[in-house]
Amino acid sequence: MSVNRKDIENIAHLARLSLREEEVAGYVETLGNILDMVGQLDRAETGGIEPMAHPLAGLAQRLRADEVTEADRHGLYQQNAPRVEAGLYIVPRVIE
């Protein structure tokens, strides 16, 4: 399975990653190699096999009681924020 520059650019866009021009060629090669290696999966006969999403087969989701356990700590949590004003996170304008 090979990928081209366009594929890399599309994936990088979908994943919101800026790539420098010179990085793109490297990713064309290495992602192509990885996908080739991953292509070995085609060797496996998986007809009728259930996909395995969790290593804990047979366990079900636990349910939490509907209780408010959290206090307002936005001041602390926003200490890591690059830009905050009046308790709000600020980003370049969202166009709708």
Binding site: V68, E70, Y77, G87, L88
Partner: peptide, 17 residues
């Protein structure tokens, strides 16, 4: 999460980790 869902709280006061 265990954050409250009340309407009209101060900005991000009900947004926990």
């Amino acid at each position: 999460s265990g954050s409250a869902t009340a309407y009209g709280a101060a900005p991000n006061a009900q947004a926990n980790l």
